[in-house]
């Protein structure tokens, strides 16, 4: 890797850090500007009690001072503070618990989508206009057009209620199977279509004809030349796919009662659990920024012709 690439990567990393800082700052102040507060409840506690709680959590200080303290704690100690609602628990524990489950759900769904999508897409391209291609295209068109919450509800109704093969709650044994399938369907269909069109494009290129003319084995043509070169567009989809999986899993966690980070995120907002809102936002934002960064860098690795500037 030359110095130009290194400089590019360094720039991108700095930009990523800047992005996360902007997210932290905007979230911090917008969150506090929203009406309501963590200590409000239907059975109101007295003003004095609320004041006592605010003092306990340092919320009685000026907002900007709280912001600086928060930033310092994050940078120097990676300390996200205590949860205001789940008293006695630290934000980092709540996030770790949720992230373990969400990561399992997301990573497995992404891998399933990538493998299945590439295999189906390549198959469809190689059997172009045959019956198998037609079937694959019809099915993937359906999955691309169908929102995941409908797919999730349908799977729940058929495979968990009518024919209870899988449990309906994400906590039980095998409970992650249905959410993973639901989450993976859309990206699978998308990758299939992407791979198919990209592969058809590559198969029509001169170098494939040259390879055939030279008598290179069909296996080598497909895996060594066609597939490899048709994966670049697919790679560009990985960033958006991750974003889809992160946001899509919020819906999935609700439908299937999966104890993931999405639930912690949504609940923290409705209950104004400020430290938890900050913690989950930072983690999710960092995750997306990092994945986009990796995707960008991978372009260069896969196709050296891409001009990084």
């Amino acid at each position: 890797m030359n110095s130009k690439s290194m400089l590019y990567i360094l720039k991108r990393v700095l930009l990523a850090i800047l992005t996360v800082w902007v997210v932290i700052t905007v979230t911090f102040f917008v969150m506090r500007a929203v009406p309501g507060g963590p200590f409000l409840s239907e059975k109101a506690v007295s003003e004095a009690a609320i004041a006592a709680l605010e003092a306990k959590y340092g919320m009685d200080k000026p907002l900007f001072e709280q912001y600086l303290t928060y930033l310092t704690d994050i940078v120097t100690k990676l300390d996200f503070g205590p949860s205001l609602k789940q008293r006695g628990r630290d934000v980092i524990d709540v996030i770790t618990d949720g992230l373990k489950v969400s990561a399992k759900l997301g990573v497995v769904a992404a891998i399933c989508a990538a493998i299945t999508g590439i295999v189906l897409g390549a198959t469809a391209a190689l059997r172009r206009n045959k019956i198998i291609d037609k079937i694959i295209m019809i099915v993937t068109t359906a999955f691309v057009s169908m929102p995941s919450f409908i797919m999730g509800s349908l799977l729940l109704l058929t495979l968990a209620v009518k024919f209870p093969i899988f449990p309906a709650n994400g906590n039980a044994e095998g409970g992650l199977v249905l959410p993973i399938i639901t989450l993976a369907l859309y990206p699978t269909a998308y990758i299939t279509r992407l791979t198919r069109s990209s592969m058809l494009d590559v198969l029509g290129q001169d170098y494939i004809r040259t390879a055939k003319a030279k008598g290179v084995a069909g296996f080598r043509i497909i895996f060594g030349h066609a597939l490899k070169n048709s994966l670049i567009p697919v790679l560009t989809y990985f960033g958006p796919m991750l974003a889809y999986i992160v946001t899509g899993s919020l819906v999935m966690e609700k439908i299937f009662a999966v104890p993931g980070i999405g639930r912690a995120f949504v609940n923290s907002i409705t209950s104004r659990d400020y430290p938890l809102i900050m913690g989950t936002t930072i983690v999710l934002a960092t995750l997306i920024v990092i994945m986009n960064l990796i995707t960008d860098i991978l372009y260069k690795v896969v196709d050296p012709r891409i001009n990084l500037e």
């Binding site: 968990a160 906590n171 609700k254 439908i255 009662a257």
Partner: peptide, 15 residues
Amino acid sequence: YLSDDSNNMLTNFQN
């Protein structure tokens, strides 16, 4: 079991 979705609760009760 902990769930915040009444639809999910009903599904689990029914199965």
